[in-house]
Write a protein that binds this DNA or RNA. Structure first.
Ligand SMILES: [Mn+2]
Ligand SMILES: [Mn+2]
Ligand SMILES: [Mn+2]
Ligand SMILES: [Mn+2]
Lengths: 218, 218
DNA sequence: ATAAAAGTTTAGATTAATCTAAAAAATATT
DNA sequence: AATATTTTTTAGATTAATCTAAACTTTTAT
């Protein structure tokens, strides 16, 4: 139905549209995919012609119902594969993204059904991101950005917003992973960094930058 | 290094060159890949330019050392994935080929290392085909085509030569799978079909066509 | 309200993979 | 040995994905 490349564009557009209801702009897509605006314009035309997105010239694109369904199936595959790599093959959580980027394009509904079953129908991937079920339904927990958390309240890490190796390796180093308990002890006015106790250990500083990329629940 | 398409051509050329030492001809490749001779000629030029094969105009191609190494790594991936699908995800042996055809192109040496370990370093895939190790070494058992087997000798099925669903489903139906014991009771002169006892049960007829596609050992 | 800047689209090329039809070479047949 | 047949290659198109440069629209700043 869609080529490998078209799928990557659709998934990216879907992710850029998540949350806000503004249209997704050509340059945003180009930046995400490390490609050029002219290339994006061409692809946009193709995807809108196929009715995965709607497109208003100069004003950006929106994902259609059909587009969202397909995008969610790609996201589902990506996250199930990431889960497989970590749970079954003992990958580190910072090693899985690039491989899943390829595996998400494998076409076989039976494979995904059976993989899901083999993994015990997981609802979140190794980064805490929700895995859509086979109908595209996402079980979303209420989560807060660590940066905005209340002082002295017991929190649990539930996801990361950034899947880069450097960030994930940094988190591993300071002892942060999904499910770990945190308490914010102090917010430093000057640079927005936080003093955080991880698993009730001696508080340590986490930069504002990092705190913006850690999601927690109460 | 090689595109998805180039890998498919290289693997096909490698398989066509297995056994014999004759050059592989343009039309053979075209037939295997359901493509046209003109397309094959172009691809041959590309692969020989990259030194995966040598090419003598009008006389066909041969796989180089470098080409064989790469082809074996694709075959290794294909067969490891097939093994995974059957052993871990409970696919039937006739359902795995098309998915493995896609999975064999995933690029990640780490993934294959870990998959191999997860599967316990298997030496044969669900069809009895040998899985090259990470150095490309194949552990090949001596095997006989059932058609040529000696009458009344105890045999064990070790591989199939044809991976088509229809053939594999037929085999499942008559109770033939890898490891099953067979005894050829009689060879029918007229059409070359064989009367075979499967797992010591009442002998039944197997066509010459089928007997040419079953490999056994003593 | 203009003019400048920023963002987007169009025009024109390029590369990979494919095809059909024509030309060329090798093989088989008389 | 000459001719016919088969096989292979070349020539010329097409489609997908990409790029640069130029043209056009929208937004921002004077
Ligand atoms: Mn991808
Ligand atoms: Mn993830
Ligand atoms: Mn393949
Ligand atoms: Mn196989």
């Amino acid at each position: 139905m869609l080529s490998y490349t078209e799928e990557n564009y659709l998934k990216t557009i879907y992710h850029l549209s998540e949350g806000g209801q503004k249209s997704v702009l050509t340059n945003e897509i180009a930046a995400s995919l490390l490609t050029k605006a002219a290339t994006v314009t061409d692809m946009i035309k193709k995807l809108s012609q196929k009715e995965f997105i709607t497109y208003e010239k100069y004003y950006g694109v929106n994902v259609t119902k059909k587009g969202k369904t397909h995008a969610l199936s790609i996201v589902r595959k990506h996250r199930l594969w990431e889960t497989f790599l970590v749970e079954k093959l003992n990958f580190m959580w910072d090693e899985v993204h690039d491989v899943a980027e390829q595996l998400e394009h494998i076409q076989s509904p039976l494979l995904i059904e059976k993989l899901d079953e083999f993994l015990g129908y997981p609802t979140a991937d190794p980064h805490g991101h929700p895995i859509p079920d086979k109908h595209g339904k996402i079980k979303q927990e209420k989560q807060i950005v660590l940066k905005d958390a209340i002082i002295d309240k017991a929190l649990t890490v539930c996801a990361v917003r950034n899947g880069s190796s450097s960030f994930l390796q940094y988190l591993s180093k300071i002892g942060v992973s999904i499910g770990v308990s945190l308490i914010v002890k102090e917010r430093i006015e000057f640079d927005g960094s936080l003093e955080v106790s991880i698993q009730n250990k001696k508080p340590q500083l986490i930069s504002r930058e990092a705190a913006e990329n850690i999601l927690v629940k109460e």
